[in-house]
């Protein structure tokens, strides 16, 4: 019996040592990825919805750049008059809708991934397949993704789409900010083709200044808000409109980064592995004490 107890203690000490080693080694893995500083030169796009004519050429260019069958470029301008609120999907990474569905004369708005400054999808992804790149783009890695769709649950703008009808290699599909083009020094496909200058590509910080300049110059024309400046901690894509876009086009969101609460709980529960290790030690103690107690009382 006593030998068993010694054995127990010995093994227990070994576990303690292992756990301590683990604790010393692993915190860098559990450190929040999204706490790393964002590059000051990260890019963004300013969408001035008051300029957009709804020609849909950006949709066509986007599909062409992403190997999705685009069809004829002339068919696109009719798409947004069908009175439906279309959503980006696995077949279209961006869509242009009327801001007011029932009013054909209302402004037009281009929708796609907002490329959040602190993306919920990046925080949620079980394998880290989604990354906020240095240039601001939020990209998806086909070699990592397991297709769990937690990014879709997490996204406050409900953007990522999934290829539900593919049995093999279904992908998470969303705007990748044309990362392949921008690394070659080209403009994103939608920005390049826009015939009226709705889309302005540039450094995010400068775009915020530019947006405010436009509002200041023509305060009657614009609703006094740059959507995306502060929403969910800020987004790379910024919107100007003649009306409030919240509740009509975008959901009502706070200014805190979307992953904030979840990450602080997660890191609280696992702060340097102290809570699990402490629980383990506590249970071990209870087990040992209750065994001894029983031995003293039961005497077997």
């Amino acid at each position: 019996m006593s030998q068993n107890r010694r054995e127990f203690l010995k093994t227990f000490a070994a576990i303690g040592a292992t756990a301590a080693t683990l604790t010393a080694v692993t915190p860098k893995v559990t450190k929040g990825k999204s706490t790393r500083p964002l590059s000051p030169n990260r890019k963004g796009v300013l969408v001035d919805t008051t300029v957009c004519i709804g020609c849909g050429k950006c949709e066509w260019a986007c599909k062409t750049a992403h190997d999705i069958e685009p069809g004829s470029i002339n068919d696109y301008n009719t798409k947004l008059t069908d009175n439906s609120q279309r959503r980006p999907s696995e077949n279209a990474l961006t869509v242009v809708n009327q801001i007011d569905i029932s009013n054909a004369n209302s402004g037009k708005i281009k929708l796609q991934c907002m490329h959040c400054e602190h993306p919920a999808c990046e925080s949620a992804c079980i394998v880290g397949a989604i990354t906020k790149q240095e240039n601001g783009a939020v990209t998806w890695d086909t070699d990592k993704c397991i297709g769990c769709r937690y990014c879709m649950v997490a996204c406050p703008f409900q953007i990522p789409a999934f290829e539900y009808h593919k049995a093999l290699d279904p992908k998470i599909v969303k705007c990748d900010f044309c990362i392949n083009r921008t690394t070659e020094g080209k403009l994103p496909a939608c920005v390049e083709i826009c015939p009226v200058g709705t889309l302005t590509y540039g450094t995010r910080d400068e775009l915020v200044i530019e947006a405010k300049r436009r509002i200041g110059k023509d305060p009657d024309k614009y609703f006094n808000q740059v959507f995306g400046e502060y929403e969910v901690g800020g987004t790379s894509w910024l919107y100007l409109a003649d009306k409030n876009l919240v509740d009509g086009v975008f959901p009502k969101l706070g200014t805190n980064p979307a992953p904030g609460v979840s990450e602080s709980i997660q890191h609280g529960l696992f702060a340097y592995f102290v809570p699990p290790v402490a629980l383990y030690a506590l249970l071990g103690g209870v087990m040992w004490l209750s065994k001894n107690k029983e031995k003293n009382e039961g005497g077997h």
């Binding site: 949620a124 990592k144 993704c145 297709g147 290699d169």
Partner: peptide
């Protein structure tokens, strides 16, 4: 999960925020 053949990925691809 859509890509069931990658179910082992979390073993080697870690995201402590998730």
């Amino acid at each position: 999960i859509g890509r069931w053949y990658y179910i082992w990925h979390p073993l080697i691809m870690w995201n402590g925020n998730s």
